[in-house]
Simulated scan of single mutants.
Amino acid sequence: MPKKSLANLTDLAGKKVVIRVDFNVPQDKDGTITNDRRIRGALPTIQYVLEKGGSAILISHLGRPTGDAEADKPFRMDRVATRLGELLGKPVQKSDEVVGPISAEKVAALKPGEVLLLENVRFHPDEQNKKHDGTFAKTLASYGDVYVNDAFGTCHRKDVSMLALPEAMKGKPRVVGFLVAKELDILANLLGTPKRPMVGLLGGGKVSDKIGFIKAMLARVDQVLVGGAMTYTFLKAQGIEIGSSRCEADKLDLARELLELGKGKIVLPVDHLIADKVAADATTEVSDGQVPAGKFGLDIGPKTIQLYSDIIAKAGTVVWNGPMGKFEDEPFAKGTKSIGEAMAANQNAVTVVGGGETAEAVEQFGLDSQMTHVSTGGGAFLEYVEGTPFAALDQIDDQ
C-alpha cells in the first residue's frame, strides 16, 4: 500500500513537525563534516514545512557514540546545525540534549518558520535499547503535531526514533518526506517493470556482505557486472590465480553457488590493474586474466572498462552498488570513474546508484547530478532490494 507523503499535507500552519532526518554525515577525526550530501538531501522536506507555516524539529543520529562524553564530542550536532543553517539561509537552533527541560523549553518557544535540531539521538540510552519502557518515545512524540520520516538510510533500523516514536504519534499525521518518497518510487520501479535490458553492477569488498542482494539482482537483471575486491573471491573459486589480492577464503563454496545460480548472467573482469603494494605510491601494471604471485588486484583493467562500458551503453536500466576498485587512491580510481562516466553517458537509461561508497564516488567524480538517482541509504538500499520489510515504514499512514 502506498504511503502518505508530506505532499499530502497542506495545512501545516502553526504545526510543529517532528522530522526524523539522516544527518549521519562523514567526518574527519576532528568531527569536521567532509560531505554534506545527506544534509542537502533533507532540504526540500524542511523547506516545505517552513513555507507552509510550520516549524521543524529535527532528529538524527551521528556516528556511533560510546557514552564517553569526551570521546563523543565529534558526534555532537553543533557543526551539523551550522551547516544546515548555511544551506537554509537562516539560523538553526540546536538543543544540547535530546529530551529534557532544555529541549522542552526550546520546542515550546518554537515559532512558525523556525528550525530546531535536537542533540544526537543516540546520546540517549533508550534510542537503541530494545527493552525501553516507551517513556523516551512518548516524550519525543509530545514535541510534535506531525511525524515525518525522511531518513531512508535508517529505515531498516528499529531504533526508537524510527519505530516507537511514530507508534506513539498514532492519531497524528505520519508521513514520509520527499527524500524517502523518491527513494521508494525509484525502488518500486526497479522491483516492478524496469526498462530492459537491466544491468546490475556489483563491487566492494565482500561477497558475504551482499549475498541476499546478489541473489535478488540475479532474479531481476539481465546481466551482473562484477568489480571490486569481491572479484577475487569469485576468481579463486574458479581456480584462477589471484596473487595476494583480497579474498574471502572461507566463502569459495558460496561464490561457486552464486556463479552457478547466475550462469550466463554474471560477468567477471577480463583484466586487472595490479600493484606491488596497497598504497597510493604503488607501481602499477595491467594483467590479463589472472594476478601474478605477490601482486594485488586493485581495479578493473582497460579491457574490462571497455567491456562493461559497452554493456552499459545498451542498457535500459543500470543499478550500481560497490566501487570497481580502491577509488580513494588516484592510481586505482579509473575503473570506478569510467563506469560512472559510462552510466552518465547513457541518458536513455534509468541509472541508480545504491548509496554508501558508490554514492561518495560518483559525487567525488562530479557525476552525481547526471544519474537518475543516487540513494542516501547504503544498507537500507540493499535490504529493500532483497525484499526485507521495513517496520519503520509500517508506522506511516497509508494513502
Rank of each mutant, 00 (worst) to 15 (best):
S60D: 00
D398N: 08
I396A: 10
L225S: 02
D22E: 02
D185G: 09
T193H: 11
P292A: 14
V180C: 01
P26Y: 06
V385I: 15
K337Y: 11
L50F: 03
E167F: 06
T284S: 10
F136N: 07
D185I: 04
I274P: 07
D310F: 06
I211A: 09
G297H: 03
P389T: 14
I312R: 09
L218P: 10
N35L: 06
V115Y: 03
D209P: 05
Q238W: 12
G289M: 08
Q223G: 03
V175Y: 06
I46P: 02
E183Y: 07
D299C: 08
A361V: 05
Q47F: 00
S208M: 02
V49Q: 00
L218D: 01
P389S: 11
K326E: 08
T284G: 00
G63P: 07
A255M: 09
L202D: 02
Q223V: 00
T283N: 14
E360G: 03
M162Q: 06
G144I: 06
L225R: 12
P112Q: 01
A255S: 12
T193G: 04
P125E: 03
A279L: 13
A71I: 04
L184M: 10
G356W: 04
K130H: 02
G171S: 11
F381W: 12
G203K: 12
G297T: 13
A141G: 05
K131V: 10
P44K: 10
L12Y: 02
I186D: 08
G289E: 10
G387K: 12
E357K: 13
S208V: 13
R20F: 09
Y48Q: 14
D276P: 14
P112E: 06
N348G: 05
M343W: 13
D288W: 03
A359D: 05
V270Q: 03
P74E: 03
P194C: 01
P74C: 11
F381G: 04
T82W: 05
A109V: 11
V148S: 01
E119D: 10
K106A: 09
S287T: 14
L254Y: 11
I214F: 00
G239A: 08
N346F: 08
G227P: 11
L179E: 01
N24W: 03
R40I: 02
A109E: 08
A280M: 05
D288S: 14
P302R: 06
G113Y: 07
P166V: 08
Q306K: 15
A56M: 05
E167I: 01
R40W: 10
L273H: 12
S95E: 06
H124T: 10
P125H: 04
L88M: 13
L187T: 12
